[in-house]
């Protein structure tokens, strides 16, 4: 695992404060430790290029996260793997809601193409410089981004004439599934526990 930390040290020397302190998740069962490091949004593409040169030739996954109660609201997690050193490294980039854009890394790893499209589709984070940023799982013209926390589990009605339409799913209530209600906090069991602050509750769900 030293190699991932060494790579982070090299990054810190080159990019200074744009690269945060590494946090290690020690896996005592399989020894597959994960080093996570926060990277400034502006420097992401340069950091990725430098990491690829350092041997991180495999982009495992890109995961967009909606942390609606924190600032910046969104985060994009990049999981990299090095075949040579056999270690994992995760980059974490904060993305503010008002300017939800990140530089695309498709020029570094071609596999980033579909992952970035999925992240855009599900959370509405735009990747600047992406050659073909279209929706991938939902259809073109679908107005919402379903993995945002304010999107209800039962779905939202939508209609793209001659393409597709959606209606809210007939979910039954209960302690562990979604119940009907005007606000997210009333609907989602995940957020019912830790009630949302008022400003989030008042937000109209999913403006197109």
């Amino acid at each position: 695992m030293a190699t991932a930390l060494e790579a982070v040290q090299a990054l810190q020397q080159r990019f200074g404060s744009a690269v945060g302190a590494p946090a290690t998740f020690a896996d005592r069962l399989t020894g597959r430790d994960e080093v996570t490091v926060t990277v400034a949004r502006e420097q992401l593409a340069a950091v990725c290029r430098s990491l690829k040169e350092a041997g991180f030739d495999f982009l495992v996954d890109i995961c967009g996260v909606d942390n609606h109660d924190s600032d910046p609201r969104f985060a994009v997690h990049y999981l990299l793997y090095s075949f040579k050193n056999r270690c994992l490294l995760r980059l974490r980039v904060g993305v503010p809601e008002e300017d939800a854009t990140v530089a695309s890394v498709t020029s570094v790893w071609k596999g980033a193409d579909w992952h970035e499209r999925e992240c855009y589709d599900m959370l509405g984070i735009r990747f600047t410089g992406h050659p073909d940023l279209r929706r991938i799982l939902m259809w073109e013209g679908y107005p919402f981004h379903p993995l945002r926390k304010e999107f209800p589990l039962e779905g939202q009605p939508s209609n793209v004439p001659d393409v597709a339409f959606t209606e809210a799913a007939p979910l039954q209530g209960g302690p562990f599934v979604t119940v009907h209600g005007p606000h997210v906090a009333d609907r989602e069991p995940a957020v019912r526990e830790n009630a949302l602050p008022e400003d989030i509750r008042s937000v109209e769900p999913n403006k197109p």
Partner: peptide
């Protein structure tokens, strides 16, 4: 096949990302 779990504690994941091999293989 990878599962990336972000937890804030408790019995429900905050975010669960599925890294599906077929998705990358088809790209």
């Amino acid at each position: 096949l990878g599962f990336y779990i972000i937890s804030r504690g408790g019995g429900v994941p905050w975010r669960l990302k599925i890294r599906a091999p077929s998705f990358s293989n088809l790209s």
